[in-house]
Write a protein that binds this DNA or RNA. Sequence first.
DNA 1: GTTGGATTTGACCAACTGGTCAAACTCACG
DNA 2: CGTGAGTTTGACCAGTTGGTCAAATCCAAC
Lengths: 204, 204
Amino acid sequence: MLKDRTPTRIQKKNRAAILEAALEVFSAHGFRGATVDQIASQAGLSKPNLLYYFPSKEAMFTALLSELLDTWLDPMREIDADGDPLEEILAYVQRKLQMSRDYPRESRLFANEIVQGAPRMLDALSTDLRDLLTEKEAVLNNWMAAGKINQTHPKHLMFSIWALTQHYADFDVQVRMLMGSEDPFDAAPEFLETFYRRMLTPSS
Amino acid sequence: MLKDRTPTRIQKKNRAAILEAALEVFSAHGFRGATVDQIASQAGLSKPNLLYYFPSKEAMFTALLSELLDTWLDPMREIDADGDPLEEILAYVQRKLQMSRDYPRESRLFANEIVQGAPRMLDALSTDLRDLLTEKEAVLNNWMAAGKINQTHPKHLMFSIWALTQHYADFDVQVRMLMGSEDPFDAAPEFLETFYRRMLTPSS
DNA sequence: GTTGGATTTGACCAACTGGTCAAACTCACG
DNA sequence: CGTGAGTTTGACCAGTTGGTCAAATCCAAC
């Protein structure tokens, strides 16, 4: 049995290998579609050995989620209430877009889970994400009230940023199939920049 | 064994019940996550009876997909090259949004499949969807060349419409959790209307 | 090197899953 | 009616899956 003490060198290495493998497999097939055997072979370990480090498939999944959620929300945390409103939002969009480019598996992991009703994630979302959104929503409202950006629905604005940026990771196969040899991420940054600049620049 | 002739009354009724049940279950759990037993009990039939009408789980899924893909692409087909450019696009956005409101299960069915790499759908997409997009892309290009709408990347423009509208169906639980008692579809139409009007109205 | 905890594994199990099949039942139609 | 095609199902099967366990192996510290 695994104790709670400070992990050994082997524990650190294997837990990391397992979580990396779990990310690979869960993001590609969803929770139900992934098998412990797949994760084990991806991690280069035997199945019983996996279950020595995590008591169950479910435990692997939740460990992975809680490890990733913080990182996933970081780009939103960085929105600075004291920065230039338009530039802050545009920078946030670009950070999110880069997350889709650099961490598509993480994006698909969350997408898979949420599309299916987020049965194992709703609790985390309804605390961490909800609180963070509430905070940034207030910031957006202030900026709008001060006339720094165009008046609009702050929650829908945030949804739109998530939808537009994560689409490139979550629907990667479709996007690439339709774009042929052109890399979607070549034109996406400028497209989204223009999009949100036109949307948010005050009409005055 | 089921013959190819004109279906009987019972065949029509049961095939319809099965496809409806399959949509319910597949859209909620994905292909791998759905079980034939679930679909059977949802349809009010026994498992062997289901397999009397469809030779396999896979056959149910592909029958469902091909039945729905056409309907799913209809809003895009309706874009009229001879209509007013801006109004045509705005109307398309609203049609897609209503599809998300009225047919969220269909949206999630496709989302589930595409997020996981579209293993059973890529062929259909790379013909039907690709051809349709190519056609409408030309229309958009003409409109832009004629200065009727702002210059932008037509493919990314279409992606953005899909992402923004389908987000409300695919990430329904997250959206509703964050919006509390407010119905997301109350403010969404106006939000998207404003969004695309600002984006596409020529600067002149 | 010995030793005791940490790590690894082959063999195994019960539950589940997609699918089969022969037998039973139902129904439209002459 | 009766009859044959159409429909339904209980029992069953083989493969897969998450998880267990006792025994074997490894490894760090003395």
